[in-house]
Computed example of a mutant assay.
Amino acid sequence: MKRLAAFDLDGTLALNKQPLDDEMADLLTRLLDVTMVAIISGGDWPQFEKQVVSRMPARARLDNFIIQPTTGTKLYRHADGQWTRIYADLFTGDESQRIREALTKAVEQAGYANENIWGEQIEDRGSQITFSALGQQAPLEAKDTWDPDHAKRKKLQALLQPLLPGFAINIGGATSIDITREGIDKAYGLKRLSEQTGVALDEMIFFGDAIFPGGNDYPAKHLGLDTVRVRDVAETKSVVGAIAAWLV
C-alpha cells in the first residue's frame, strides 16, 4: 500500500491559479486521515497559501500535509500550529539575470512579444523563474484557449534550451514555462520529499495533468514512481474519492 500521495496543483487539484473548491478540500482532508499528502508545483509559497492552505478545513490533519513550492526547490511542513520552511535552494543574482535575458530573446524570436498581457510575464520565485505568456493575472478563458496542445510552449522551450545550458526548462500550467537549475525538476523535489519523510519512492504515487515528455510532471514518471495522469480537476476528484474510500 502507498504511504504517500503526491499531487501537482494547477490543472490537477484546482483550475489555474484558483483556490481549491470545497469538494477538493474535503477529499484531501479525507485522504490526510489515512495517508501522507504532498503537493508539488511551480507556484511559490504565497500562491500555495491562497490556493491550498487557506482552503483546508480546521479538522484537516496538517501534520500529514507537505507543501513543495517552486517545483520542489522549497519544502514546508506544519508543526506546533504553524507552517515552517524546511529548505530552499535559491538562484544567484547572475543566474536570474541570465534567465531573464534568455526569455526576452526567445519570446521575441517566437513571435509572442505582442500578445495581450495581463500583469507581469516573468516571475522570479527565488529558486525558479516562471514565464507566463499572457501574464500572471490573465483570465482563465484566455489561458485555456492560448496553447491547449502545448505547441506554442514547445516552440519556446526549443528556443530557450540552447540559450540556457545548465538549466531545466519545463512546460507547466496553462500558459507557463518553468525554469530551474538543471537536475531540479519534480523528480528532484520528490527525492527530497523522500529524504524528508522517510517514505521510499516506491511507496509514493503521483498525480498530475502534465505527465508527458516535456511536461513538468513527466519527471515523476521518469523517476520510476507509479503515476496517474489526469485530464482535469474533475477526474482527479473521481480518482481521489475512490482512493480515500478504499483506504478507510
Rank of each mutant, 00 (worst) to 15 (best):
D178S: 04
L160H: 11
L223G: 01
Q157K: 13
F131C: 08
T180N: 13
D202V: 00
F131Q: 07
A168C: 05
L193D: 08
I179G: 07
N170Q: 13
I211Q: 03
G215D: 02
I122T: 13
E203R: 14
R125L: 03
P165Y: 01
G183D: 05
E203F: 01
G198T: 07
D178E: 12
E120I: 09
K221R: 13
L160Q: 10
K191G: 00
T145G: 00
H150G: 00
N170I: 02
P148D: 01
Q161A: 15
P219A: 04
I179N: 05
K186Y: 01
R192V: 01
G224P: 09
D217F: 02
T130Y: 02
F212H: 10
I129V: 14
D178M: 06
T145S: 14
Q161S: 14
K143M: 13
R125T: 06
A110K: 10
L134E: 03
V199D: 05
H150R: 15
E182G: 12
A168E: 14
R192T: 05
E203N: 13
H150S: 12
Y188N: 00
G172L: 07
D149L: 11
K191N: 07
V199L: 04
E123P: 01
G173W: 05
L140T: 09
R192G: 02
A151E: 13
T130N: 13
A142R: 15
G172N: 06
D202W: 03
F131K: 06
Y112S: 04
P219D: 03
G183H: 03
L223M: 03
G166N: 05
Q136K: 14
N116L: 13
R153S: 09
E182F: 09
S127N: 05
Q196H: 09
E108N: 12
L223Q: 03
H222L: 14
G208P: 02
G126S: 09
G172Q: 06
F131P: 06
L223A: 03
L134I: 05
L159E: 07
A142E: 15
A220N: 08
G126P: 09
G214T: 03
G224F: 11
Y188K: 00
E115A: 05
G214W: 01
D185M: 08
P165D: 01
L156P: 10
I184D: 07
H222C: 06
S176Q: 12
I117P: 04
L156K: 10
D147Y: 04
I117R: 15
G189V: 00
T145Y: 08
Q137E: 15
D149N: 12
